[in-house]
């Protein structure tokens, strides 16, 4: 019954069942290894050993300080552009069916994409040198 459903061309939720099985196996493997290494290793804790490593000198302050804004900017730009890239996927799969008209429409979409891209470049959002 199940194998009939699985071999049918219609892609249904049942096709994802093996992935769930693999997830369970992988979680079991990771949890097992983590507990084994926890039980096997020696435990001789000292306060110096549990201090954070900072090239052998005493650590100064907390590490969780404000970071350079550039990293944040990259993350925001990624979200913006990745959403646009995801829109290309359904188009690419149906590319041959959509033909010339579809291609011209996508050209327009790429133009919008490029306008945004050129704008962030002109504003220096991607310049890391300074």
């Amino acid at each position: 019954m199940l194998s009939v459903l699985l071999n049918s061309p219609a892609n249904t939720t049942i096709n994802y069942l093996p992935i769930v099985i693999q997830l369970v196996v992988a979680i079991g493997f990771v949890a097992f290894m983590m507990s084994v290494t926890h039980l096997l290793g020696p435990k001789r804790r000292t306060s110096d050993k549990l201090a954070n490593f900072e090239s052998g000198i005493e650590s100064v302050g907390n590490a969780r300080q404000p970071m350079a804004i550039k990293y944040f900017l990259v993350a925001i730009l990624f979200v913006l552009f990745d959403v646009e890239v995801i829109f290309f996927y359904p188009y690419a799969v149906n590319f041959k069916a959509l033909g010339k008209e579809g291609f011209l429409a996508v050209l327009m979409f790429v133009a919008f994409f490029l306008v945004g891209f050129i704008y962030i470049r002109k504003r220096g959002a991607l310049d890391w040198e300074e």
């Binding site: 084994v36 096997l40 020696p42 435990k43 804790r45 549990l50 201090a51 907390n62």
Partner: peptide, 13 residues
């Protein structure tokens, strides 16, 4: 060797 090493979780972590 990795299995038998001491497991360290820093105090601040």
């Amino acid at each position: 060797k990795l299995f038998f090493k001491e497991e360290i979780i820093p105090n601040d972590a």
